[in-house]
Design a binder for these strands. Structure first.
Length: 457
RNA sequence: GGCCGGAUAGCCAAGUGGUAAGGCAGGGGACUGCAAAUCCCCGAUCGCGGGUUCGAUUCCCGCUCCGGCCUCCA
């Protein structure tokens, strides 16, 4: 498969360190607040990559960290008069829950920063020993100019960085570009013992430490939001490579930002839509479609209109699955299923082309509906099975079923029998009244050649 | 100011050196007691100006506009 690599700024083959196995690290959230809609994208993109590769037989080892110590978490805890760990625990749990609702496969390891303080200290000690870091009044700073490759990921040059610098002046720094690996504890803050006194880790070092711990050096793929390219990922590379003298990650994958009215969704801009609300309102499949309808690298603008379109698309797929649900026939061989599979795979092989993969699914639905219309049940069954399978590779559940469906089913069926009887004697007033009452109760009735079908709206 | 990316039909969005997938909306037709669902048909010469080429939307240069990063951020 070919993927855009931020490091080389080109689409290139994804070459695995161990053939058949992908070692992937994805930057997770800082658990300072409820996850928002943008976080969903950063999880769905690697989720699709993982599902697709697993479908092709690759074994994926997926690590996603949780940043559970940081300035904002501490600030929030102070505001609420709570412990920082409590705040982190609350939002970490919420994040995990919402990702499960979204249908994102859980990572194999979900390390927390506070659980890896020792690894970080070891890494910092190596950097100091190498001359890449220095202690200053209880802080430890990374010496940016000691690392030749600094800027290779984000395309920046150290000297240019300096001129435009909005970096705050700090006398303890030998160079304004240097960044903190370890921060001396301030009163009341969570802190850990270290060779430099009590303190807490800087943001960037945790990913270097945890990626190294679980994936080793020179692992296959590192992902995250495009807003992390600089400085976070640049700094991760610097720290890791300065310490190990080996390449950190070979392939860098960055998802584009979610915007709202053209502006990036973020807490600081103040335009966030929480994921809880979005899931309540639209459900996992619609949100997933909304994101996958666009290249993972492009920005996507959130709007009611786009979400309505996504909902219409999911409805169309589900409508076909409902129509073809009861086909109890020997699926005919290959045919349209094979064509769709080929188009689908080709799309994803080419830089995770989910829009084109969607097109393959729409073609399958169109073909399947036409097959049903033509009475070709065996072919329709093939289309149905292929749709289920391929949509599943993208992480769609497409489930029409809920416990509510099961519970109301006997009632609805009984009413539909009455309606059938009314229709048989051309009593359309009664028939339409039943349909209208069901509709008002959220049950959509659709007549077909083989009788009425229904589903919850 | 620097770096990265983008500009394709009413809207969203793929893609290709040889006249452009898919979806939504819209129009027409079919089916149907009606409705819904479904099927068939209908739409763009690809931001602007140059250049390379037999030929560019696709490559190169410039311009304009937009987004992201340069501070915490998925």
């Amino acid at each position: 498969m070919r993927l855009y690599n931020t490091l080389t700024r080109s689409v290139e083959p994804l070459v695995l360190r161990d053939p058949g196995r992908l070692a992937m690290y994805v930057c997770g959230p800082t658990v300072q607040d409820a996850p928002h809609f943008g976080h969903a994208r950063a999880e769905i993109v690697p989720d699709v990559l993982r599902r697709y590769l697993e479908w092709t037989g690759v074994e994926v080892f997926h690590v996603r960290n949780i940043t559970d110590v940081d300035d904002k978490i501490i600030a929030r805890a102070d505001r609420e008069g709570r412990d920082a760990a409590e705040v982190a625990e609350r939002y970490g749990r919420l994040f995990t829950e919402q990702m499960a609702r979204l249908g994102v496969l859980p990572p194999h390891v979900a390390p927390r920063a506070t659980g890896h303080i020792l690894e970080m200290i070891e890494l910092i000690e190596r950097l100091i020993a190498n001359g890449a870091a220095y202690e200053a009044a209880g802080d430890v700073l990374f010496r940016v100019r000691s690392f030749d490759g600094y800027g290779k990921l984000s395309g920046r040059r150290v000297d240019e960085l300096r001129s435009g610098a909005r970096v705050e002046v700090d006398e303890r720094k030998d160079d304004p570009l240097d960044f903190a690996l370890w921060k001396a504890a301030k009163p009341g803050e969570p802190s850990w013992a270290s060779p430099w006194g009590r303190g807490r880790p800087g943001w960037h070092i945790e990913c270097s430490a945890m990626a190294g711990r679980y994936l080793g050096a020179n692992f296959d793929l590192h992902g995250g939001g495009a807003d992390l390219v600089f400085p976070h990922h640049e700094n991760e590379i610097a720290q890791s490579e300065a310490a190990t003298k080996e390449p950190f990650a070979r392939h860098w994958l960055h998802n584009g930002m979610l915007t709202l009215r053209g502006e990036k969704m973020s807490k600081s801009v103040g335009n966030v839509v929480t994921l809880v609300d979005a899931l309540d309102r639209y459900g996992a499949d619609v949100i997933r479609f909304f994101f996958l309808a666009v290249s993972y690298r492009s920005p996507v603008d959130l709007s009611e209109e786009r979400l309505a379109e996504a909902a219409a698309a999911i409805d169309r797929w589900q409508a076909f699955l409902r129509a073809a649900a009861r086909l109890d026939v020997e699926p005919a061989d290959a045919g349209p299923g094979a064509t769709a599979r080929q188009a689908f795979s080709a799309a994803l092989e080419d830089d995770l082309g989910t829009p084109a993969a969607h097109a393959a699914l729409f073609d399958l639905v169109s073909a399947g509906n036409a097959q049903l219309a033509a009475g070709d049940q065996a072919a329709a069954a093939v289309s149905r099975d292929a749709l289920r399978e391929l949509a599943g590779v993208l992480g769609y559940g497409l489930s029409d079923h809920s416990s509510t469906t099961d519970r109301v089913s006997p009632l609805v069926e009984a009413l539909l029998e009455l309606r059938d009887e009314a229709r048989a004697r051309k009593d359309f007033v009664t028939a339409d009244a039943i349909r209208a009452r069901l509709s008002a109760a959220g049950v959509v009735v659709e007549d077909s050649r083989d009788g009425a079908r229904w589903h919850l709206s």
